[in-house]
Design a protein around this nucleic acid. Structure first.
Lengths: 199, 199, 199, 199
DNA sequence: TATGAATGAGAATTCATTCAT
DNA sequence: CATGAATGAATTCTCATTCAT
């Protein structure tokens, strides 16, 4: 069924298979997919999961780090785009398109911690701050939002769309569009409260 | 041998206590808070939970119905407000302020069903449609959103704010403000896709 | 639905309704039908069951006594029949036809005891001994079986037939016929062992 | 803190121990012996039961299959015996002697299903048909009974004997003898109804 | 490295029974 | 007499995790 994987050394192969399997399981059953399920999907024994990841939470963390890493790469590339406004929009669109419930990522993150996690997350915020700043300087985004604000908001479209019973899979685009309109500078009263801190 | 029995309290009291306890438990541990936890909070035995609610899902449904009912009452009162634009805004603000994760409500709803649930939910959508329509006619809200769109979006602010690590409790107001700005009619390109169906 | 009962005083009415309900429940779910089920069928509250019967076992015992009583009456009437052989056959046929799993009756009996139970059961054995004796004297039944033997065997046909998957409801007649043939005097070697004692 | 672990025993050992324990528990408390009881008897944790058998029903099925298998082997061996009449008698005697309540086996079978179960049961019926046919051809058994009839009747002796209060353990032999006499060809009127179908 | 086996800690749910009204 | 309410004990089953091989 699965296309013959490039035969890396056994250890790495299983680790990668587990990350994939976990991702698939999370997508289907949410973040409390069982270890048994994940192991089955990866074609290994349950105990092997613990051979590669210290705990269930550690596996979750690893998956999230992997995903965030990808997003991070995308963000860094977009930092050098010509039109800063469009760049930010694109970042949000692509991140939503992955539809991986990155949202919960942040929540769980706190609990599962892990060195790597913190590092990736921090760099993500840095990139977002930069993307936002450039967009603001180009006049494409209102001045009173921060990268952290955007980080939180980027979870909303897919999360919200997930609750519509029989919607088309692109429904999130509607809500991303509304939020983007809300981020535009024209005709926007000052925001209440303060932007949330990073930590 | 026989432990001193609890001083006999009338049925309705315990039922209400259970609804409260469940609400608290859900707030703390999410919707899979255990029956044991809920019973402990309410100060009753596990079996008593099942005396009042047929199953775990039935309890969840009862809690959600209760919450939606409150919101529904609010919405119906606001239907008669003088300024339709402000009325919709207020509805969203107050519904968010309850901070009850009304969001998942809609999702789970489908599964846990129950006569009452469906009825309350439908009436909620009807009220939202009306609120939105009046606001649109008053020129306060863009013409291309529906009550269902708003129903989905109203979950976003508190959901999103919940992931900020050490934020002030009013953080959701920021994101509600942004979304409201996104709902304003001026300077808003046409939305992609179609509004989701009710069912 | 139920034909208007002769309005005995409330207490007795409920007691009778419970016995009926228990019988029906046992027939459908076997002897571990739940008290809740029985109460529901009788249209009374669970606690009322315990008002009339000291325990679940006591209720079972009462039902069994009632049934045995009926059978006992039948047996006593048949004691005066003209053809002793036919009389015994008829007793067995009619007792099987009631298809009430009288069998387990004896088993459970021991545990649930109760004065009445022991008395009825003893009288039953006495009647059976007499029926058998008369049949033996008439040359219709082999000499080496006792009333107790017959008491045990009479459970077999319906019990055995109950395990046939899609059989016609009269299947037990086949097995009763075979057993009756086995009880005939002609061509029957001596039985091994001793007939079981009454107690 | 950590209790001294059981000295590690190989999987098959525990599986066998569980089958034995289940058999013993069934014999004592009937087929609704609790998993807890069975686990205790086998000296393993409750969860271990589910490691070996998917569900309570699966365990029951496994026990029954194992028993039927034994009986099946016996039957197949007896198919080649010299005296067909004696062969059938011996089969019934030995199957009763195992005193395992094989009876319920057939009943439950239908519910607990399972591939193996159906197969073994079917082969059992086939063997019984053959045994009966040979016995009939030898003039030892009446012509109007089938293998299915005998399958049902073979449960009767032990079942019936089980209800005698203080009987000697060989009591079932009496009732088997009577039934065997009933199966003899001489002096037996035609049986009412039709033999039950296999399924 | 990988795994089958084993398990303790819960999970939801059922049930016979008791008590105050 | 009747009952709604309450509960302790038990039941089946799940799951993350550990260990010996």
């Amino acid at each position: 069924m699965t296309p013959p994987r490039a035969p890396r050394s056994d250890g790495l192969h299983n680790r990668a298979a587990l990350l994939d399997a976990a991702g698939a399981a999370y997508a289907e059953h949410g973040f409390d997919a069982s270890i048994a399920d994940i192991a089955r999907r990866a074609g290994v024994a349950k105990a092997t999961v613990f051979h590669h990841f210290a705990s269930k939470d550690a596996l979750l963390a690893a998956v999230l780090v992997q995903r965030l890493q990808k997003l991070l790469d995308l963000g860094e590339r977009l930092l050098e785009a010509e039109e800063p406004g469009a760049a930010l929009m694109e970042f949000l669109a692509l991140s939503a398109q992955q539809r991986q419930q990155n949202d919960l990522a942040f929540a769980r993150t706190v609990e599962a911690a892990g060195e790597q996690m913190n590092e990736v997350r921090d760099r993500m915020f840095t990139v977002l701050d930069a993307l936002v700043l450039r967009a603001q300087e180009a006049g494409a985004v209102r001045r009173d939002v921060t990268g952290m604000d955007v980080a939180l908001l980027m979870c909303a479209p897919t999360h919200v769309a997930a609750f519509a019973p029989n919607a088309e899979p692109d429904l999130w685009r509607r809500y991303l569009a509304i939020i983007l309109d809300g981020l535009h500078p024209q005709g926007a009263g000052p925001l209440p409260g303060q932007a949330p801190p990073r930590h």
